[in-house]
Each structure stands twice: as C-alpha cells, then as structure tokens.
Simulated assay, not measured.
Amino acid sequence: MRSVVITGTSTGIGFGTAKVLLDRGFRVFGSVRKAVDAERLKQQFGSNFTPLIFDVTDEAAVHAAAGDVRAALGGETLAGLVNNAGIAVSGPLLELTADEFRKQMDVNVLGPVISTQAFAPLLGADGSLKGAPGRIVMIGSVAGQNGNPLLSPYSTSKHAIEGLSESLRREFMLFGIDVIIIGPGVVKTPIWDKAEEIDIARYNNSPFLPALERLRAFMLRLSKDGLPPEQIGELVHHVLTAPRPKVRYAVSPEPVQLLLAKILPKRLLDGIIAKRLGLLPAKGG
C-alpha cells in the first residue's frame, strides 16, 4: 500500500485530498493542529488514515511526526508529501504589522520548508529505504503568478512557493524525488470564510476602507462558488501516479479569467483590478 503525508487535513483541500487518496487505496498520514480534529478524522476516514498532530511551523513537532511515519513505514519509502497547510493574511501593506506579514510567511513558506526537510529522507533522500522515490506536491495558487491587492502577504507567500519548488525540483533530481506545483484558482475552502473576521473597524480611517469592504464581499463569494476540494484531490492523485507529470498544473472554475491574466498586458490588468476594487485615485474636479 502506498503511503502519503498531507499537511493541513482538517478542512478544505487537505481534507478533500485525503478523502480521494484513501478512496484510491492510499494510506494517508494527515496533519492537524488539534486533537479533536484528529479524532474526528479517524472516525470519518477509518483505519488507513493516521492523524499527525503538529503545527507546520513547529520544527521539533514536525520532525517527531516524521519519526512516527518512518516507524510505521517499516523501512519502505513514502510515496508522496503534499504541502498543503496554509493561511491567508489580508489587509493593505501600509497598515499591516511586520508580525502579521511574518506569520503569513512562517506558515505558508517556512512550513513547507520544515515539512520537506523532515519528510524528504522518507521520500528517498535516505538511500537505506526500500522502494521507489516519492513525489512532493506543493499546493500553490493562481496568486503565485499574479499579485492580488490587499492580499500581498498571501500572494508573496505563494510566489515564494513557486521559486522554492523550482529550486527543489532540480536539487532533488539527485534522489529521483520529483516536485510538482498545483496552483488552484478559487476553491470552496474555509480559508476564505475567514473574510468575516477581517476587522473592518480597524480601517475606519483608512483610504483603503471601501476596497477592503469589496474584497471581503468577494472573498465570501469565493467560499461558495469555487471548485470542490475533491477536484484538487483528484489532481493530486494524478500527480502522484502519472508516469511523467507536468511540473505545474493550474486549475480554476474560471479558466477564461485565468487565461486573460496570462495574456493581458500588466498595466491593463492593473487598471481592471483597481477599478473592480475601487483602488483608482479620485479624479480632480
């Protein structure tokens, strides 16, 4: 039985991916941060799911979990690592604290770095293990190739994942470990439900207030109109099992908009986005 580690399986893409891979006969080790989620997922998913309780930014806890997975594998390699856990920090850059930006980078960038360092030996960097080398799937975003205003921390973190993945793919050729990026567009995931938690009152005197209110409404629509997480799970399954997967996959419920973002001149796209959010300067009268 092939085994895979998925970070952030309590909800969203991680949950949907775990469900799909379990249905396809994989054994899944899924990370959660709370014991209550670990128990819930064990009951929902059954005996082929093993919860790992850690925060991806806690290096000691992640490496301890990797030790548990090594013991469970009994000398075999891991088939895959899906670096999925993430958060989205929103707000205008001029009014965010350095700590808020740092938290975004810690979870979305340093988290995958820590997880990769911990689990790469099990994927085949440790030559003493038996079995074919595994693959690393990085869950990126369309925001990794296009910057979103008022979500600059999130966009920055996903751009970083693109560069990290490119570098690791070439480094890990030494071990036969492939690194593939999946950059989804809008997905029905609770990460966007947190738009309700944006403290609009904090920005009452901010010139960005109208744009933030539009952004919050847009983010709340995302949580209802996006792709089902299981569709990303199906793509992860393809990436883990295809003989020669592509290095990057993009999937979106609005492929036309994805195409336009690639082909439109940047200045034109800037104007469209700014008009939509109300970020154009006021005209003098």
Rank of each mutant, 00 (worst) to 15 (best):
L269M: 09
K19C: 07
K42D: 12
G80I: 02
I53V: 10
A160P: 08
Y203L: 11
N83V: 06
A60W: 15
F175N: 00
G12V: 00
L235T: 00
L81T: 03
E39D: 11
M173Q: 11
R27Y: 09
R2P: 11
R276V: 12
E254A: 12
R2Y: 13
V142H: 04
G86H: 00
M105R: 10
A195V: 05
I177Q: 03
F45T: 12
F208N: 10
L264T: 10
G285N: 15
A261N: 08
G147A: 14
I53G: 08
D55W: 06
T77I: 01
P253I: 01
F208E: 11
L41T: 02
V251W: 02
R221D: 13
A261L: 08
I232K: 03
V107D: 03
E196N: 15
T9H: 07
A72H: 08
V239S: 01
E196P: 09
D68P: 12
S47Y: 14
P281A: 03
A250K: 09
L168Y: 02
S167Y: 10
F29L: 05
M1S: 13
K194M: 07
K246S: 11
A261G: 14
K158H: 05
G67R: 10
A60R: 13
D178C: 06
L96N: 04
R33V: 01
T9W: 06
G144H: 04
H238W: 03
Y154T: 00
P265R: 00
G86W: 00
F101K: 14
I53K: 10
L151V: 10
L235A: 01
M105D: 13
Y249K: 02
T9A: 08
I272E: 14
S223L: 09
G91S: 07
R169P: 02
L260K: 07
D126H: 02
L123Q: 07
L174T: 10
I161S: 06
D225A: 14
R170T: 09
G30R: 07
G8K: 05
F175I: 00
K158A: 03
T57S: 15
A274K: 07
K266E: 11
G271M: 14
I180W: 01
V251A: 03
L260T: 05
R27H: 12
